[in-house]
Amino acid sequence: MTSSSSSSESNRSDAQPDREPSIHSEGRSTSHAQRAFSLTLVATPIGNLGDFSPRAVQALAEADLVLCEDTRTTARLLTENSLSVRTEALHEHNERQRVPALIERLQNGTRIALVSDAGMPLLSDPGYRLVCAAIEAGISLTVIPGPNAALSALVLSGLPPHPFMFVGFPPPRSSARKDTFAKLHAAERAGLSATLIWHEAPHRLAETLADMAEIFGPARAAAVARELTKRFEEVRRGPVAELATFYAENAPRGEITLLLGPAPEEENSQDTLDTTLNTLLETHSIKDAATLAATACGLPRRTVYARALELSAARKQ
């Protein structure tokens, strides 16, 4: 074993990692450092400006144009790193309209960098339409990886790190939120087992946690990560109902990532079926609620439909 290890070390000593080729979608090997990309997706700090990488600084310095959610936010980042580059806004309200002209500029040789206000572009942020259009047009693109709130929260949460599902932001209204949670819970009954991750606004956190406790059960393990990488970083862990109570009494501030642990293995019962059906009947027709509940609980649809009719009739009395 020792001689084999020494041989491996000897072989590695001749390698030059900074000059190793990388394989790109075009199917040829090329040096990433020497290749010029038309569109570069650049991760930005989620709080601590020290997390902005040297490669990210270089990418912005070499760009002809930086697309950003809020030009004022990006201006502060550029100033902090002594960068002077043209910026334009690209956000959810103008991205669809702007994409054709941006693709034309990329095809004409303009080097564009895309950033969000914080973290990785596209993840709950603008840019997806532009990236899809660039790929369709055969435009070369790359990413400068960096900070990400969802993954940072995941590794701090104490919940199983994989598999996980990043769901974005929950709907702002409670009824739509419960509907979304019910569908996820139905998927869990059908076999989904993953740590679920959302971002949430601080003023909605307590209500969202309460809705989670109602749909997923009060004892489900959860975590709330707040102000990650910043001075007042905090991760609070516990049963989802306890977290709901805590944040109802202690209004949170700052950027928040919310995590829910995987569903525990349990046998389906009449109580489970009734709970699932009653939740679904709040926002679905009897037929649709029965279909979802049958899949979730692994029971015959005809049996579940009959029970849905009974529960629906009881709700009207």
Rank of each mutant, 00 (worst) to 15 (best):
V240T: 01
L90Y: 04
S3A: 15
A56R: 00
P218Q: 10
L49V: 13
H162L: 14
V304W: 00
R315T: 10
A149M: 05
H185E: 11
A89G: 09
T283V: 08
Q270W: 10
E26G: 15
A290C: 13
E95A: 06
P239D: 14
S82Q: 10
Q97W: 12
I256D: 02
K287T: 13
G217F: 10
E9T: 12
C68D: 13
I112C: 04
N94V: 10
D51S: 07
L192C: 09
Q317M: 11
K230W: 06
P262C: 08
Y128R: 04
G50P: 00
A36G: 12
Q317A: 07
N11L: 12
R177A: 12
C297Y: 06
G238Y: 02
I112M: 05
A219Q: 05
N11G: 14
H199N: 13
L90G: 02
L123H: 15
S38G: 12
R28D: 08
E234L: 07
K183V: 08
M165W: 11
I215T: 02
E80V: 07
D51C: 14
L90M: 08
A314R: 13
S82G: 10
A219M: 08
E214Q: 07
A134V: 01
R98P: 01
L83W: 03
S140N: 07
T73I: 07
R28Q: 10
G109A: 07
I112Y: 03
H284F: 04
L39I: 09
A153N: 04
P160S: 13
V235W: 03
L156Y: 07
L196C: 04
I46P: 00
L49F: 07
G50E: 10
R86F: 11
I256G: 00
G109M: 10
T257D: 05
L273I: 14
R28G: 15
F232W: 14
G238P: 02
I197H: 01
L258I: 03
Q107P: 01
E242L: 05
R204A: 11
N278S: 06
Q317F: 15
G47T: 15
L281W: 09
A206K: 02
P239K: 06
G127R: 00
F181H: 02
R76I: 04
I144R: 00
R226W: 02
I112Q: 00
G138V: 13
S7E: 13
I46L: 09
A225M: 04
Q34K: 03
S38Q: 12
L156W: 06
R177K: 08
T142Q: 03
A89K: 02
F164E: 13
G168Y: 15
Y305F: 11
P252E: 15
A314Y: 11
E69D: 15
A150M: 04
S82I: 07
T87K: 08
E310Y: 09
P262L: 09
G168H: 15
V155W: 13
I135Y: 06
R220D: 10
V304P: 00
G217N: 11
